[in-house]
Design a protein around this nucleic acid. Structure first.
Length: 563
DNA sequence: AAAAAAC
């Protein structure tokens, strides 16, 4: 492993000049005002109207396309009905982010919704936010609140519970950190603190790396104040066993299991916690994490506990759980739920089978590309071996990161990434959520994501804070059953999908057949055949012009955005 | 639906 890392750092093949030339060649200036096509109700932008392709096709294909059209329509209708359902207050506006960013629809739903704010300054007058916080915001370049910030911050400052759904890279972290720090007032170490003793705010996130990143953000905001903000880890758990020390802690940022371990050992009390935040809420509420979250919830016994959940994705089941957990919550949705940012240009690339992936990737990396590139694989061993393969094939500055590595290895990998030393980072789902590497221009899904949520979060590592991004997803014949779901995500966020994908049998049908509701021998094979023959046709086409698939899907999406 | 992540 060490040898591998040395190799990957390898200076020998490192040709910086050539590399820089390549980069400048390919890094086009980000369009200042990107043309945005709005979705008008009941109407699709021409580029999205792929149904027209189906017109001359077979009945089957047409039916499928109509199915998709219906699904899209249905979703719209649902959203509208949802809006109409509300007897309580509702606010809907176009939140204007910084001029360079696309406007995104913000829908706030709930009782007595506090009005949003267009500036951070306003918070000083309205909520007596300290001017120190304001100046820290300015120092770190937060000039104007994003959609989720302008709505979420007042809600949290008015002590309301909140479920916030906002796309990747739109500033969710600040949306909860700022109100927490503002309403905590004086650090509990100060003499005139009347806040009682013990930890007063807890932020829970699913990975160490993310917790670490949130901690860093928190420290920035806290500059100039004697807050005690603790990133929970093995080391800090020891010190916190001392009650006197523990009582001076203001904010804890932790992964759930770490927190639960401390609760169980009796080394930690959360009975004075006033603010509890679940970041990446859908992940925190899934079957693996939820029992731990429940334990944390139970330990937060203060009657004035404020709870809030944040995520870019919140499937119906998770949302229900969240809403049950929250008290008289306000639900804020920015953009369209479970949909990536339109700034990310997405494409699907067919690679017949697993062995064909590596050559495709190598071909891709042999050409000028925009580093750093983040590559996702489906397992830790696959991440490791892919990274090794890339190094063996002469790719420079390859790095690897997964949860099987030691804490130190992980930290080092992240810091190399932050410093821009990694050009190619191979990783697993650990990196899928929340991580904010500003420079990432491209995400490659080497292994197909296992859910729509995973896809949305993975590609959300690029296109952050108003920048453009690119996401390529490899798929094989085996991925066919899940291809359509992802293809719909592309469509909804304004990227185009090769028309032939729509000919694939519906996932439900495939699955039903695989489950053997009908005789296997009869059904499974024909089902496979349908998928295969399409795939083979496509393969032939690809063989004829290797890059066409990529071209096809990515060319036209440069100018299309949708909400 | 399924792997990865949490200690």
């Amino acid at each position: 492993m060490e040898a591998f890392q040395l190799l990957s750092r390898g200076g020998a093949r490192f040709d910086k000049k050539r590399f820089q030339k390549d980069v400048s060649l390919f890094s086009k200036e980000p369009a200042k005002s990107r043309p945005i096509e709005r979705l008008v109700d009941g109407e699709l932008p021409g580029e999205l109207d792929y149904f027209k392709y189906a017109a001359g096709g077979s009945g089957k294909r047409k039916a499928d396309s109509e199915g998709v059209a219906k699904a899209l329509k249905k979703r719209k209708v649902e959203e509208e009905e949802e809006d109409q359902d509300m007897e309580e207050d509702e606010e809907e506006t176009e939140a204007d982010d910084t001029p360079s960013r696309p406007r995104q629809r913000v829908v706030a739903k709930g009782s007595n919704i506090p009005s949003h704010t267009d500036t951070f300054q306003e918070l000083v007058e309205r909520y007596q936010m300290s001017s120190l916080l304001l100046s820290n915001l300015t120092t770190y370049g937060y000039t104007q609140p994003t959609g989720i910030q302008s709505y979420g911050i007042p809600i949290l400052l008015e002590s309301r519970d909140l479920a916030a759904i906002s796309p990747t890279g739109t500033g969710k972290t600040l949306s909860y950190l700022l109100p927490i720090m503002s309403s905590l007032g004086a650090p509990s170490s100060s003499a005139n603190s009347d806040a009682g003793s013990g930890v007063r705010a807890v932020v829970v996130a699913p990975t160490r790396e993310l917790a670490h990143q949130i901690h860093n953000e928190c420290l920035k905001l806290a500059q100039g104040r004697k807050w005690r903000i603790v990133l929970f880890s093995k080391a800090t758990a020891g010190t916190l066993a001392d009650k006197a020390t523990r009582d001076k802690v203001d904010i804890i940022i932790s992964t759930p299991l770490r927190l639960v371990a401390s609760l169980r050992s009796g080394g930690l009390e959360l009975n004075n916690v006033r603010h509890l935040i679940l970041d990446e809420a859908d992940r925190m509420l899934d079957s693996e994490f939820f029992p731990q979250v429940e334990e944390i919830l139970a330990a937060c016994s203060h009657p004035n506990l404020q709870k809030a959940v944040f995520s870019a994705t919140l499937p119906a089941g998770a949302e229900k759980m969240a809403m049950q957990m929250l008290k008289d919550p306000i639900r804020v949705v920015v953009g369209l739920k479970d949909t990536p940012l339109p700034l990310i240009s997405q494409s699907l690339t067919y690679v017949a089978d697993d062995p064909s992936k590596l050559p495709s990737l190598l071909t891709y990396l042999a050409q000028p590309y925009n580093p750093p590139v983040l590559i996702f694989t489906s397992s830790q061993p696959r991440a490791t071996s892919l990274a090794q393969e890339l190094v063996l094939n002469g790719v420079s500055n390859v790095d690897c990161l997964h949860a099987g590595m030691t804490k130190k290895e992980r930290e080092d990998a992240v810091s190399r990434m932050r410093k821009g030393e990694s050009w190619v980072m191979v990783s697993t789902e650990v990196m899928a959520r929340g991580m904010d590497f500003k420079g990432i221009r491209e995400v490659i899904n080497y292994d197909f994501p296992t859910s729509v949520q995973s896809y949305v979060h993975r590609i959300g590592r690029t296109g952050r804070a108003g920048r453009e991004g690119k996401a390529v997803t490899y798929f094989t014949d085996d991925d066919a059953p899940f291809l359509k779901a992802i293809a719909n995500v592309l469509l909804q966020s304004g990227s185009t999908v090769p028309e032939w994908i729509l000919k694939l049998p519906k996932p439900s049908k495939l699955k039903r057949r695989q489950m053997g509701k009908v005789k296997r021998a009869e059904i499974v094979n024909p089902a496979r055949k349908v998928g295969r023959s399409d795939a083979i046709k496509k393969r032939d086409m690809v063989a004829g012009s290797k890059r066409r698939v990529v071209r096809e899907t990515s060319k036209s999406d440069t100018n299309i955005t949708a909400e």
